[in-house]
């Protein structure tokens, strides 16, 4: 199978989205910086978006996959806006955005 066939089959898209998803989960689990965690979450959301568009293009006559991808982008933007505000306020009070420093509430 040459590279062009791969780009025209669903496997290529699924491969990219799986790699993005794993990288996103990895970033969320290992990053200490709050912005880093946020970026990991964006990777997970975009992996889902790619999946939706790919499945919709190859397996479905309707446009609902593309619609969902649009909604994911919208919701990710809303979430990022709130997340940045929360991280900013955390920074004002603690002078750091290291997630490990959020240790006031624990057993």
């Amino acid at each position: 199978m040459n590279l062009l066939d791969f780009a025209n089959s669903i496997e290529g898209y699924l491969l990219v989205s799986s790699i993005l998803f794993v990288l996103g989960v990895f970033a969320v689990l290992t990053r200490k910086n709050a912005i880093g965690i946020l970026l990991g979450i964006e990777l997970i959301l975009n992996a889902a978006g790619i999946n939706f568009v790919a499945f919709s293009k190859f397996h479905s006559a309707a446009m609902d996959g593309q619609m969902v991808a649009l909604f994911i982008i919208l919701i990710a933007a809303a979430e990022a806006a709130v997340a940045l505000a929360i991280i900013l306020r955390f920074y004002r009070l603690k002078q750091t955005i290291d997630a490990d420093e959020a240790s006031l509430l624990r057993n």
Partner: peptide, 23 residues
């Protein structure tokens, strides 16, 4: 801050799962 991290991650996992069910 903690709610945000947990909430965003789990809803991200969920939408990825939904994309698989869609497929």
């Amino acid at each position: 801050f903690k709610y945000l991290v947990y909430g965003a991650v789990s809803s991200g996992l969920m939408i990825f799962g939904i994309s698989l069910i869609y497929g």
